[in-house]
């Protein structure tokens, strides 16, 4: 599904964020990427999202070189990916309903579909009663669940979750991971980056360990080892 072919990223200041990375992520996988700060996890994620361009090598999504896509095709491609971030990245002037509806509108979905799907997806993340709240009226865990609802509402092929539990307490962390597992069980590929050892160890899924921009380990059913 996603294939990194000898990808390197060297910034203009000479620092190397990725160093000759090759890896493959298969459909329906739940892949965790771990590593210390600066190991290259975020750059890896940004490469998948088409936010960063490789200095060498190429990143493929189903045979398509992501970085050769034109702007409009890149928008279409991004609609096939759901993103969840540590800082939630909700639209602060839109309420919960509108935040999720925006992703559907961007994908060209009709008002009728939006009216049906938004409440449905909010029920899935157990936020049906907060539909008209604004982000500042929600707790961290609730904000992250809205972000997940937004990420999954267009039924993406892949969910990218970049440190989604970084700002959450253990209870909310557990709930968010359970939601991600459920999404994966329903057939969506999940790529998760985290520093949380407990989360990785409890998942028992594939773990890619990054060190100095390189893939240091790639364990099928790994643990958090640095």
């Amino acid at each position: 599904m996603i294939y990194f072919d000898n990808v390197s990223k060297i910034y203009t200041d000479g620092s190397t964020a990725l160093d000759n990375v090759s890896l493959r992520i298969e459909p329906n996988e739940f892949v965790s990427i771990v590593g210390q700060s600066g190991a290259g996890k975020t750059t890896l994620i940004k490469m998948i999202l088409g936010e960063e361009y490789p200095t060498f090598g190429a990143v493929f999504f189903e045979e398509i070189d992501i970085h050769s896509l034109k702007k409009t095709n890149l928008n279409d491609y991004r609609r096939r990916i759901g993103t969840v971030f540590q800082d939630f990245r909700l639209l602060s002037h839109k309420n919960v309903y509108e935040n999720i509806a925006f992703a559907m509108e961007a994908a060209g979905r009709s008002e009728e579909e939006i009216a049906v799907d938004v409440p449905h997806v909010l029920e899935l993340v157990d936020l049906g009663n907060k539909i008209w709240n604004f982000p500042h009226q929600l707790s961290g865990g609730e904000k992250q669940r809205v972000a997940i609802a937004r990420a999954i509402v267009n039924q993406p092929d892949i969910i990218i979750a970049d440190e989604p539990t970084g700002n959450l307490d253990p209870v909310n962390t557990y709930e968010i991971i359970q939601i991600l597992k459920k999404i994966n069980d329903l057939g969506t590929t999940v790529v998760l980056t985290t520093h949380n050892k407990g989360v990785i160890d409890s998942l028992g899924r594939r773990v890619i360990t990054m060190e100095n921009g390189r893939v240091a380990r790639d364990d099928k059913s790994g643990k958090y080892i640095l």
């Binding site: 928008n75 990245r89 937004r150």
Partner: peptide, 16 residues
Amino acid sequence: KDEIAVMRLVGASSRY
């Protein structure tokens, strides 16, 4: 500014 970046990430077109 940050909201514009989020809109980009969810695949909204420039015009939208």
